[in-house]
Design a protein around this nucleic acid. Structure first.
Length: 334
DNA sequence: AACACGGGGGT
DNA sequence: ACCCCAGTGTT
């Protein structure tokens, strides 16, 4: 793991932010890229947010990147680059919650705070036979207290890594290695045959469908992008001018003409048939239909969130997966 | 306390 | 389909 070879709190912080809700196998390459592009907190602080978001593209939950960047500016600017070394100061950094503060505190500074992540919740809910949903705050506190008690005066870093590794390698979500487990004799979950019932989780809500009708408007090598600034998914990433509605069915030709005229694109020619892509998010399923038009001249852009970009420069903008996929598959653009 | 927030991979 | 991922911020 990244922190196995270092006590550098910056590198540990970087890896922990990247690995929030992200498998090591997915985050590893991003960690290496960020260390390469931003070897110190000063490098990260000096970068533009756009550049950081672009490097983050494909990882998801990109408020992590924005909070991390803001925290880097704070550390570099206000703390002269010296990473905070107490639990409460670490916890005060943007994007750092109880888990990450405990991880950084224990790994980098040997502070005695137990980590409580998905692994720990699974291991301890099984071992102690906890049948309340682990996502409840009360259960979380219970598990945290048990972890603190188990840590005792052991080495915090060793303890935290051990319990998480145990969850990741032995006490796995499915097909856990109970038969070879050295703790099966004292594991309540194993003794009561509840291992495959634990941890209990509250039922999840079903995904809401959303229908985006995107306009890919180009004029020669120029393309119109829109920066997403609303309180919504994909904040500060780029997509295209869009109409959202409740219908899966295509915009009629008349609807499209009205949209184009309304925004000053009276002279527009359809350049290809509409194509549809879908993208699953945790709480939403996005159904996007793309309409491509070539416009003869570009008027003054009607919104300040709209930007003109050269096709050659698209690689500098951070796009949601579904937009990146459209650009690459339909236009060969990266 | 409940909810929103991405994207990937396994079964 | 559904689950999970070395969780956090907002309401």
């Amino acid at each position: 793991m990244p922190w196995s070879n270092t006590k550098d709190p910056y590198l540990i912080w970087l890896s922990e932010i990247i690995l929030q809700q992200t498998r090591v196998s997915q985050g590893w390459a991003y960690y290496e890229k960020f260390v390469r592009h931003y070897p110190t907190v000063h490098d990260l602080a000096a970068a533009s947010e756009a550049r950081v978001l672009k490097d983050w593209q494909g990882l998801g939950y990109n408020s992590r990147a924005r909070n991390m960047h803001a925290a880097a500016k704070y550390i570099a600017g206000e703390l002269a680059g010296k990473f905070p070394a107490t639990y409460s100061e670490i916890l005060g950094l943007k994007g750092v919650g109880p888990y990450t503060a405990a991880a950084i505190g224990s790994f980098a500074f040997d502070l005695p705070y137990p980590v409580v992540d998905g692994n720990v919740k699974r291991v301890l809910s099984r071992y102690f036979g906890i049948s309340e949903p682990v996502d409840l705050p009360s259960t979380h506190r219970d598990i945290e207290n048990k972890a603190r008690s188990l840590m005792g005066s052991h080495q915090p870093s060793e303890f935290n890594q051990a319990i998480m590794n145990f969850g990741a390698l032995q006490c796995t979500p499915i097909n856990p290695g109970c038969q070879t487990c050295p703790m099966k004799a004292s594991c309540a979950g194993f003794q009561l045959d509840l291992v495959d019932k634990l941890p209990v989780k509250s039922p999840r809500k079903k995904r809401k469908k959303r229908f985006f009708h995107y306009y890919f408007l180009s004029s020669g090598d120029q393309v119109i992008l829109r920066k997403r600034t609303a309180r919504d998914i994909w904040q500060h990433m780029y997509d295209f001018p869009v109409i959202e509605n409740r219908s899966r069915s295509r915009q009629s030709v008349a609807n499209r003409k009205a949209f184009l005229e309304e925004h000053g694109f009276a002279q527009a020619n359809r350049t290809s048939s509409p194509v549809q892509y879908t993208q699953l998010l945790t709480h939403q399923s996005i159904h996007a239909i793309f309409y491509a038009y070539e416009i003869s001249e570009i008027p003054r852009l009607p919104h300040d969130t709209w930007h003109l970009a050269d096709r050659k420069n698209l690689s500098t903008f951070a796009f949601p997966k579904i937009i990146a996929r459209y650009l690459e598959e339909q236009w060969g653009l990266k």
